[in-house]
Structures are given as C-alpha cells and as structure tokens.
C-alpha cells in the first residue's frame, strides 16, 4: 500500500516546528506502525536527511515509551492498543495520515515526536509509593487482601505511564494517570497509612506541573491503551476531598 504521511518536525525545543509531508510506498499491511516509520527513516538516513525522532522501546505495548497522535487520536484509532502494536492493516491504501507529538505544556517537545514526560515521574515522587525500606517487610501472608480489592488494584496498576490520557484530554489534564496510581495504592491495605497524604501531595504536584483540570469528558479512558477506568478519578477525588477535610 502507498501512504502520505504528514509528520510534525521540530529540530529542538527552540524550533517552531512544522508539518512535513512524506510519501511512503510498498507498505506491507503486516508492518507495525513503527516499522513503517523505520522504513521511512532508513530511506531518510541514506538520502542524508534527518530521520524522524520518535520514542519507542519494548514494542510490545508495555513499556509506555512510544506514543504519537495519529489522525487526531493518541496511539491511533484502534482501541486498547499502543502505537507500537498498531498495524498497517488498519489503514487504507492511499490514506493520508497525520502524525503529531503529545501536546501539553508539561510535555515539552524534545525533538519531532519525542516529548519530555518527566512531569509524570515527579507526580510519583510526590507520593506514589508505599514507604517500606528493603528488608523491613512482614511476611507476605500476614495481611490477607480481598481478591476483589487485589483485582481492582491491579486494574489501576496496569497504567503504563505513556501519557496518552494527557494528549487526548481537551484540558491537558493528567488526572487519569495520577488517579490510577492513587487508586492502585488506595485499594490495598498496604497503602492505607499514607492514603490521604499521598492523594493530596500527588494532586497538588499534578497542578504544580501545569496540567489542566479534569472536566470528566472521558476522552482519556477512551484512548488509554490499558483501559484505565474513570472510576479511578472518582477515587482520587474522594481521597483528595477527605484529605482536605482533615
């Protein structure tokens, strides 16, 4: 198949950036989206052009490194799929595909499609953990956990930190990411002692990073490759309210 790509090119943080059009030919439908870009990049390198910079690593949908807005949708329109797992068979021959980086002030563009997501790390630093130094833990069976709670905590914990939620949110909010971690730890007995201070600190850090507020539009959960539920945001709101009521 033959495609036209319109790709955001930006040489660095200081460059204004622009959309550049590329033609790619003989694309196999069995290729992944990133393999299609690999092939284009190989050509660009040989021709002496600068290849398109994009983040990627595991290419099996779990590390959260890859991510681009494809035709206006983070990770593309295929649901519950990261960019690296998106395959070209979902596109039509002759299609025009726009490719843009995540857009948010707390995710400044580093180059082309590569953005800086260190704001997510700082939200975790604010309290996304259980304070338990190595070697100090009691026996794993000393605290039973209801299976339902463990399962729900797991669902929240599957967040891969890719940032698609922020990219999709009309407000540029990081609520789904932050709430997923708060919920994961809130549902487990091990997370209880720090539950309220954690929620408060993480929400405040999210604000301090410059993310927008949540207006419950549900765009985030729709594009989340792991299908993190909006329930987590309600859980975060509840914990945050309780933390402030104290």
């Amino acid at each position: 198949m033959n495609l036209t790509l319109k790709v955001w090119r930006q040489s660095g943080p200081k460059d204004a950036g622009r959309m550049v059009t590329y033609r790619v030919e003989d694309v196999s439908p069995d290729m992944s989206f990133l393999e299609m870009l690999d092939v284009l990049n190989e050509r660009l390198i040989v021709e002496g052009d600068d290849p398109i910079a994009f983040d990627h690593d595991c290419r099996e949908g779990i590390c959260g490194m890859c991510g681009m807005v494809i035709n206006g949708v983070p990770h593309g329109e295929q649901r519950a799929t990261t960019t690296c797992q998106l395959h070209m068979r979902h596109f039509e021959d002759g299609a025009v595909i726009t490719i843009e980086p995540w857009r948010a002030a707390p995710f400044p563009v580093v180059k082309d499609l590569v953005v800086d997501r260190s704001s997510f790390d700082r939200i975790i630093q604010a309290g996304g953990f259980v304070s338990v130094p190595a070697g100090s833990a009691p026996d794993a069976h000393s605290v039973p956990v209801r299976k339902e709670d463990a399962d729900d905590a797991f669902d929240a914990a599957t967040c891969i930190g890719c940032g698609a939620c922020v990219a999709a949110c009309p407000n540029g909010s990081a609520s789904l990411f932050t709430a997923a971690k708060i919920t994961h730890l809130s549902l487990l007995p091990q997370g209880q002692p720090e539950r309220l201070t954690r929620a408060k600190a993480m929400v405040e850090q999210m604000d301090a990073e410059g993310f927008g507020g949540c207006t419950n539009t549900g765009e985030c959960t729709a594009v989340c490759p792991k299908g993190i539920s909006l329930d987590t945001i309600a859980q975060m709101n509840s914990d945050y309210l309780k933390a402030n009521a104290k």
Binding site: V132, S136, A137, D139, A140, V143, H184, L188, Q190, G191
Partner: peptide, 10 residues
Amino acid sequence: IDQAVAQGVP
C-alpha cells in the same frame, strides 16, 4: 515476595 507485597504489588 514480602518486600513486593508490602510495596503494594498487586
């Protein structure tokens, strides 16, 4: 296993 459970590994 003890350490991971205490950290909240589900």
